[in-house]
């Protein structure tokens, strides 16, 4: 089977980011998406700590220690960008003003439930950050994640077994094998990468899939 690497996964997500969109990218593979958005599209990136129009990493020596993104990496501000406090930043997120949020996930359910903030290991301290606010607030929520765990267990399930981040919040799942939409009818495969077949992807999925329309 063809398994996309994280760069290819990010590149595929970037194809679905339209010109003019206000977008929040989560930590990890989602952060890479901005590297692949075509140069003729104008996309404004929001960072939860209080930035609109996040620019690329600064040149070495040009870093401002205050100017970081949600992943704590140094960034810059594009002309036209602005700063605001955290409560206003989350009003942007919760209030439905962002067009798209892209998040990583541990698990997604057949009805679009998202689990991405905690495992069932109570000894491991949990951390939630802004994930729950983005999950309920963004107009569209894209999840990008490997189709299975390292142990080849499915991450797309009828019901999540990890604690939920939000219920019925995911619209589209980009994995390393396929693109899958959460629809009122169920999970519909909309794209299979390379020569991957529907049956192969279904065999690695813990929920029933609908074939491409």
């Amino acid at each position: 089977m063809l398994r996309f690497n994280p760069e290819q996964m990010a590149e595929r997500v970037a194809q679905d980011i339209p010109d003019g969109a206000y977008v929040n990218l989560g930590i990890g593979i989602p952060t890479k998406v901005s590297n692949y958005v075509a140069g003729d599209k104008q996309v404004i990136y929001h960072s939860e700590n209080g930035i609109l129009a996040v620019g690329p990493a600064p040149a070495p020596g040009e870093e401002n220690p205050n100017l970081i993104n949600a992943g704590k990496q140094y960034v810059t501000l594009l002309p036209g960008g602005c700063y605001f406090d955290n409560a206003e930043s989350f009003a942007i997120m919760r209030g439905g003003h962002l067009d798209i949020a892209v998040l990583g996930a541990f698990q997604v359910s057949a009805t679009g439930d998202l689990a991405n903030w905690a495992t069932n290991n109570d000894k491991f301290p949990p951390a939630v950050g802004g994930a729950m606010d983005l999950a309920v607030g963004a107009r569209k929520l894209f999840v990008v994640m490997r189709h299975t765990t390292r142990e080849n267990e499915p991450k797309i399930l009828e019901q999540c077994t990890y604690p939920l981040t939000g219920t019925g919040v995911v619209q589209r799942i980009f994995t390393d094998l396929a693109v899958i939409d959460v629809t009122p009818d169920g999970l519909r495969v909309v794209e299979l990468f390379g020569e991957n077949t529907f049956e192969e992807v279904q065999a690695l999925t813990g929920a029933r899939l609908l074939p491409p329309a």
């Binding site: 939860e48 930043s89 989350f90 997120m93 000894k123 301290p125 939630v128 802004g130």
Partner: peptide, 21 residues
């Protein structure tokens, strides 16, 4: 946290800033 000497109240970030606001 592991030794149990600190209690954690975990709050989603936007709820934290709004509760403070």
């Amino acid at each position: 946290f592991e030794e149990g000497s600190v209690e954690l109240e975990l709050v989603p970030q936007g709820t934290l800033s709004e509760r403070i606001r």
